[in-house]
């Protein structure tokens, strides 16, 4: 598992690739937390992952809390139905911003 990072007009787009499960959650955590240290505007794109476990959800939640504490913004984008249903099932869709595409997410970053 690896995390691709790109800068799109001041917003860091993080794209985890592969499976985010217990054994890879730490790699995911380290890369997203490092990104959050340098930038307050972050989008996580889910189009390149096959699976996310509760350990992966926890990382997304930690990222959300960290950005909230520093007045930053986190938007989750490009979610396949299967991944979206995991976020919906755990109730995370109620506290995290989810958009279909990056274009749709743009206005949220102000």
């Amino acid at each position: 598992m690896e995390v691709k990072t790109e800068d799109n007009s001041g917003v860091i787009i993080l794209t985890p690739m592969g499976r985010v499960d217990t054994s890879t959650a730490k790699i995911f955590e380290d890369s997203v937390m490092a990104a959050a240290d340098t930038n307050g505007k972050i989008a996580v794109s889910f189009d390149s992952i096959d699976y996310i476990s509760s350990a992966g959800l926890r990382v997304v939640l930690m990222l959300g809390k960290k950005l909230k504490a520093s007045n930053g913004t986190l938007v989750l984008i490009n979610m396949p139905d299967k991944i979206y249903s995991v976020f919906k099932m755990s109730g995370f869709d109620k506290i995290l911003k989810i958009c279909a595409t990056f274009d749709e997410a743009k206005p949220l970053f102000g």
Binding site: L61, M89, G91, F92, K94, I95
Partner: peptide
Amino acid sequence: DSGMALGIFEEV
């Protein structure tokens, strides 16, 4: 209703 996992957000 899926509610929300416990331990995340107080006002659920």
